[in-house]
């Protein structure tokens, strides 16, 4: 439905997205995955630092701050903000399994 692909740094506060791809490689990629950020994961923008960078995202109930350069390496599919995030995370992983 919403096939508008973009990167994580494009999201505004309160908006959510589902990760479609990670464009970074090596240890950066592994670190993100360790934190539970991998294709299918939903993220919500929660806080922005008073100086504009980094931004904190709600991921699997944790609050993780990423610098903009990192967020640019996470491709996402934006989703409408009013959908509860909890449902999304279960849904996305469920589809992943099937």
């Amino acid at each position: 439905m919403y096939k508008m692909s973009s990167t994580l740094d494009q999201l505004q506060r309160g908006q959510s997205g589902i990760v479609t791809n990670l464009t970074c490689t090596g240890s950066n990629r592994r670190r993100l995955m360790d934190l539970g950020i991998l294709p299918g994961t939903s993220l919500t923008v929660e806080l922005t630092s008073p100086l504009g960078d980094p931004t904190a995202y709600r991921v699997r109930e944790s609050l993780i701050a990423l610098r903009r350069s990192q967020a640019q390496e996470i491709e996402i599919e934006p989703i409408t903000a009013d959908t509860p995030e909890i449902d999304l995370s279960t849904e996305s992983t469920e589809t992943e399994r099937s």
Partner: peptide, 22 residues
């Protein structure tokens, strides 16, 4: 590595979703 991580998180999500009620 992606596949391995995805498999772990898929299980983690499955176990968590069936164990947790909100």
């Amino acid at each position: 590595h992606d596949k391995v991580m995805t498999a772990i998180y898929a299980d983690a999500a499955q176990i968590a979703s069936t164990s947790v009620s909100r």
